[in-house]
Each structure stands twice: as structure tokens, then as C-alpha cells.
Design a protein around this nucleic acid. Structure first.
Lengths: 197, 197
DNA sequence: TGCATTTCTTAACAAAAGGTAACGTTTTTG
DNA sequence: CAAAAACGTTACCTTTTGTTAAGAAATGCA
């Protein structure tokens, strides 16, 4: 069951069987139905998530509209802002699909650091990696047009374009659903002309 | 001399005099002239930076144009992508002003972790914090218009708008210098009307 | 100081994105 | 199963941004 998690962690360090056992014994694997809200706006939860299977989404409610800013799918993890800052969450986290997630808290982390100091190294490496990825995404956002960002997403996360509603993808790309629809049409038309020529 | 650094680190943990001494003995404080390039495109440096005084900038060279994506000023730090990924850097890091920086390498970090395990906790906390800040910046980018982003920057980093060339600020905001110029004019005009009314 | 470069602004036009609304389709759900 | 809600696309018009170009202002350097 925990294969996805241990394969992921192996990117950073090889865990002993004992260490794996400690993780499994934490009883952190949980199933959630599509639409389940994991974190409400204003809530100050302690839970962080790792996606074993499924997809979770972060969105802000702005003037009654959902503004989606992040998706996490298989082998991706997310520590909500409020877990780090201890302030009420500005955004909502919900399940886009039926999902199996690991749910961990800061205190569980702390305990595991004391039992196995290497876990802290693991967390540091993971955190540094996520920061670099996030920075690269932000950079890309600044230097690319909406169309370029969509094309880039098609290359880098083709599954996402399939499994997620278009209007959620749109705000994830920083545009309106109508704009995304136009961009898709534009690309299709250009492909058609390209094939002809 | 190291006051700025220790004030910053105190946000995360109180260091003992001995620990501070270890840091000072690393001899990590260096001065750089305005325009100095700290990291070239394609280079695979090991150095991370903390700004004691001055300002450094990250930019990509795209079609012969500089696309600025980040500024770091007093008490901000930056680990270039290449330090984490060990791959050639896709961007340049240079000094916008004469600057005093701390320059540290992964191996220096490693050594300090061994002498003082608490340093690793410090780095983990710092990294988690940076990730949350970066995520918030990215979210804000997705849900805000260029004008809203500029107004937001005026509030959150008013110094930056003063000390940095407009055309560098523009790409930092994800727009062209001409667009930024128009936005500034628009805001000025609106302020004038507001005062009249 | 004076010349060259860089920087900032403005203008005019083209391209793209936002807002509003309508319409057909799909998905939920009672 | 049928009504309701949600979703994706298209159209029209407005607003904003990109592009190209030019000129004024500031800056750097010899």
C-alpha cells in the first residue's frame, strides 16, 4: 500500500526496514471521497498531505469565485500555509477525485525527528527541492504568456489537462475559462494550418 | 558586522555565543561592486547568498533580453537552483547595488550540521518558510492582474520600486516596461481624480 | 565637461485578455 | 428518470497588454 510513498522517499534517501515500519505504524493512510474539503478557509489545521492516489486542489474564494492556484497528484505533497505560519488559512484544500492520502502533523514529524534524526534531513532536502521547483514555476509564469504557459503545461503535466475541469485549469494558468477556451481553439486552428502546409 | 544575519536567524532560533562564533569563523562575509555577476548562465556554482546590505537580482537571458524574476534585499537569502539540482544554471545572479553578502556552500552547511545539529533544524525551518512565502507569491500572481500586482508590490516592498530600474521591475511583475509605464500613469491619473472628487 | 549609453515615457496600431451573456452539453442529484 | 446545476464554448464589445518606434531624461564614463 505504501509503495508510492517509499518510492518517492527513495529519491532522497534509502530508508531501513525499521524506519519504514515506524512510518507505517503512524497510521497515516486515509481515503477521501471526491469533493471532500480537507482544509476550510479560515481554519488553522495541522495536517500536511502526500498524494498516494488521486488529486487535491487549492483554491481561494474571491468575490464568490473559486480561484484555483495549485493541484497535487500522485507522489506530490503539500503543507498548507497555515501549518507553517499558524495563521488561519486563506485558501481551501479539497479533493478533485477520490483520493488516498497520507495525513501527517507537525507533532508527528517532531516525534519522528527524535526517533530518527535522518527524517529531519529528509524533510529538509524535500523542502529545498520543493522550493526550487516552486521558484522555477514562478519564474516561468513571469517570462511566459498565457498561451505559452498552457503549452508548457501540456508538456509537463499532460494528465492534469485531462483529469481536471477546464475552468479550474484556467485560473491555475492565471486566466479566465473563456480565455483558455480561446487559446485551445487558437492552438487547434494553428495545428490544422500547419498540417495542411 | 554580522548583526543583520543574527537578527534574521533569531527569528528561527536563539543561537549561543559559541554557535555565533562558529558562523563568524567561517569567514563568509564578502563585499561586491554593483554589477558584479555572482553566477553566470550555464555555470554550476555551489554558493548560496544572504544579503546583509544591498540588492541582488536573478534574470534569464531570453532572445537577448534580460527577464528579471527575483530581487533579494537586506535579510533575504537565495540558494540558486543549480546548488540544489547540481545542473547548469538557467539564470544569472548579479548585484544591483554595491552589496555585502554572506557566501556559503553546501559543504560548509554539511560541516556545520555535524558540529551543531541544530543548524539543520534552522535550515529546515528557513526552507519551509521560504517555500510558503514563494507559494504565496505565486498564488498572488495567478489571482491578480498586473496592475493589482504592482499596487501590491508598492505596499509590500515600497523600497524596491525606488531602488531598482523600472524595466527590471516590469519583468519582475511579468509585463513589459511600456505596460508598467502605462499602469503608473493610470494610477497617477486615478489618484488625481480621486483627490478632486 | 561632453559624449555615448541606458532608461523612461509616449504614441499608434495589433493582438490578446476580461466581462457579459447566450446556448448546447454533460453531470449531479433528488 | 427528470429537473437542476455545472461546464465548455462562442460571440460581442471593452479594456489591457504587446510591439514597434521615437524622443526626452538620466546616467555613466572617458
Amino acid at each position: 500500500m505504501a509503495t508510492e510513498l517509499f518510492t518517492f522517499l527513495a529519491r532522497y534517501m534509502t530508508l531501513t526496514d525499521e524506519e519504514k515500519r515506524v512510518i507505517i505504524d503512524l497510521d497515516i493512510f486515509h481515503s477521501f471521497k471526491k469533493g471532500t474539503i480537507l482544509l476550510h478557509e479560515g481554519e488553522c489545521s495541522e495536517a500536511s498531505y502526500f498524494v498516494m492516489k488521486g488529486c487535491i486542489r487549492c483554491y481561494y474564494m474571491i468575490d464568490g469565485e473559486e480561484k484555483t492556484t495549485a493541484f497535487y497528484t500522485e507522489s506530490e505533497s503539500h503543507s498548507p500555509q497555515c501549518v507553517i505560519t499558524k495563521e488561519p488559512s486563506k485558501y481551501v484544500v479539497s479533493c478533485v477525485e477520490d483520493s488516498i492520502l497520507t495525513v501527517t502533523t507537525a507533532s508527528m514529524e517532531q516525534e519522528s525527528f527524535e526517533k530518527f534524526p535522518r527524517f529531519q534531513t529528509l524533510c529538509r532536502l524535500l523542502s529545498e527541492d520543493l522550493l526550487v521547483k516552486n521558484q522555477a514555476t514562478l519564474d516561468d509564469f513571469k517570462i511566459s504568456s498565457p498561451e505559452a504557459r498552457y503549452l508548457n503545461l501540456l508538456r509537463s503535466r499532460p494528465d492534469l489537462v485531462q483529469r481536471v475541469p477546464q475552468h479550474q485549469l484556467a485560473s491555475y494558468l492565471g486566466i479566465t475559462p473563456q480565455s483558455l477556451s480561446r487559446i485551445r481553439k487558437r492552438i487547434m486552428d494553428e495545428e490544422k494550418s500547419a498540417v495542411k502546409a
